[in-house]
Design a protein around this nucleic acid. Structure first.
Length: 508
RNA sequence: CGGGGCGUAGCGCAGUUGGUAGCGCGCCUGGUUUGGGACCAGGAGGUCGGGAGUUCGAAUCUCCCCGCCCCGACCA
């Protein structure tokens, strides 16, 4: 048997390891349509758990769900100049509405549309058109709406979960009477995202505004949460945009204020996507496969019966049922504990490895010896695969919620320690360049560059000259972290005064 | 869209002086097994990515196309 369930290992070839984890955990696969993925039940269950938690948080902050069309008239997209520029190169366009059977049996698009329809890459424009109708008075504000939807962006280099042509997400769109209120909303939702990432996904994130060149097309300010993956690259895990009055001016989203004067609304938008599944994979998983934070794991506990004879089988299955009954009353993170007995006619070892690769937090084995002793054998996914602890059944049940909490915390702590280990402050261009230059890969088997770099905390101005310098290294300013105190300094490239350090990193 | 690599059974792969397809794993059946990826025996499964061409004969040679991976370009 190989030493690890996943080949290659993270160290040998990180991108390939990522794909193999997805395959081994049965999360998703490529589809017949280039760039699109099939999300399989195990992967979709993770998304459903994310959706449920986020949806609750959106409702708690006063938002309602609604649904807007998949198709956006071309003319809508043209309204905001920067928006057009940003998305024009990656839009799927519907030009026909009918198929006719050709002489050779092939189907031919006919019925050309008068105005082409764009498959939404995002919905600011189509939602704005509704808001323009709905909003007349200050009494109609704020409008706080979210939609769960799919979007299409015709990407050149798709990667499962990280960048696919079609993906699932939520997009919140709000309209406010004042600039202050809109900014407050933008930051509120950024906080929802960082709380969700850290508490539920066990992914530590850095929050902050993006430099101008990384802004959402049409936004005044874009804030993101950035997470460090195990290859030390940064993944933008969520964004929240303050759109100013750019879209409301373009789309005439106006209201009468208390003085009876007409004003343009201040709008925001914010979103997270199935990319978060990629973030979870690359933050927690190891060389034996997926590792899931309990709060979003489709299954918390899997019970694997071990038996030979039919008599043993009956006794063992009865014991498994007893565990299930006892656990049924328990809760973790405000939800019932998700436990499944896997009584499929398979060898125990095969099952065990399947659940290791799928990232189930706790594995329980119950065999004749356990039944006789009133005990269970417990393994945790955050511990090495062959680690097993025997304990009395009652003790296990009693401790279960806190053990799940402990695993959740352990994953967060590990990820935070990893990020801290690979975060450094630098005060010269040379030091930053050295940090991001791969070490000599001399005798390595793999073609992949060795894992290196990380987050560089550096004083840089929001200036094109900074980008020019770091472009060749493929390093960008991810965001300007907003947590912590100001630390005035001077840009290491331009010499301009800066209020605090930015995070520079290679990114997905 | 450029540069490189690849495409043969569900998965991983072998298969050049061109001769009609094989191995490992997996799957199915029977048996022996069973506390951490079992063993024996038998069996099923392939338009060799697609198309055209050269040839008596193509997985193998030529051309075109498609798809995947890596590196660029591109990308909130």
């Amino acid at each position: 048997m190989p030493e690890h369930a996943i080949s290659p290992t993270r160290e040998e070839n990180y991108p390939e390891w990522f794909q193999q984890v997805i395959k081994a955990a049965d999360l998703a696969e490529a589809s017949p349509v280039r760039g699109c993925m099939v999300i399989k039940p195990w992967g979709y269950a993770i998304w459903e758990n994310m959706q449920r938690i986020l949806d609750r948080m959106f409702k708690e902050t006063g938002h309602q769900n609604a649904y807007f069309p998949l198709f956006i008239p071309l003319s809508f997209l043209e309204k905001e100049a920067k928006h057009v520029e940003g998305f024009a190169k990656e839009c799927a366009v519907v030009t026909h509405h009918r198929l006719e059977l050709g002489p050779d049996g092939k189907l031919i698009p006919t019925g050309k549309l008068e105005e082409p329809l764009v498959v939404r890459p995002t919905s600011e424009t189509i939602i704005g058109a509704s808001y323009a109708k709905w909003i007349q008075s200050y009494r109609d504000l704020p409008v706080l709406i979210n939609q769960w939807a799919n979007v299409v962006r015709w990407e050149m280099r798709p990667r499962l979960f990280l960048r696919t042509t079609e993906f699932l997400w939520q997009e919140g769109h709000t309209a406010h009477a004042t600039k202050e209120e809109a900014i407050e909303e933008t930051l509120r939702m950024l906080n929802v995202y960082s709380t969700f990432a850290e508490r539920d996904l066990a992914i530590p994130v850095v929050r902050g505004p993006k430099p101008a060149c990384e802004r959402f097309p049409g936004a005044e300010e874009t804030y993101s949460i950035e997470a460090m993956m195990q290859d030390c690259k940064s993944l933008q895990a969520g964004t929240s945009h303050f759109l100013g009055q750019n879209f409301s001016r373009a789309q005439e989203i106006k209201f009468s204020n208390t003085d009876g004067n007409e004003e343009f609304c201040w709008t925001t938008s914010w979103g997270v996507s199935t990319r978060l599944i990629g973030a979870v994979i690359m933050t927690h998983s190891d060389d034996d496969g997926l590792v899931l934070p309990p709060r979003i794991a489709p299954m918390h506990v899997v019970v694997i019966p071990i038996h030979r004879s039919p008599e043993e089988r009956d006794a063992v299955l009865a014991a498994c049922q007893r565990v299930k009954t006892l656990v049924a009353d328990l809760q973790f993170a405000g939800e019932p504990i998700r436990l499944r007995i896997d009584s499929r006619d398979m060898r125990g070892g095969d099952k065990v490895w399947q659940y290791i690769k799928q990232g189930v937090p706790i594995r329980l084995e119950i065999g004749p010896r356990d039944v006789a002793a009133g005990a269970v054998s417990v393994s945790r996914r955050d511990q090495p695969p062959r680690t097993k602890t025997s304990m009395p059944l009652e003790e296990f049940v009693l401790a279960l919620p806190s053990v799940l909490e402990e695993i959740q915390q352990q994953l967060y702590d590990r990820a935070l320690a990893f990020r801290d280990l690979h975060t450094q402050s630098f005060d010269s261009k040379e030091a930053v360049v050295a940090f991001f230059t791969p070490p000599d890969s001399g005798n390595r088997k793999s073609q992949e560059p060795m894992l290196h770099g990380g987050f560089a905390r550096v004083h840089v101005a929001d200036d094109p000259r900074v980008n020019e310098v770091f472009d060749p290294l493929k390093v960008t300013v991810r965001c300007i972290p907003m947590d912590g105190d100001d630390e005035p300094g001077f840009c290491i490239i331009t010499g301009l005064a800066t209020r605090r350090r930015s995070i520079l990193a290679k990114s997905y």
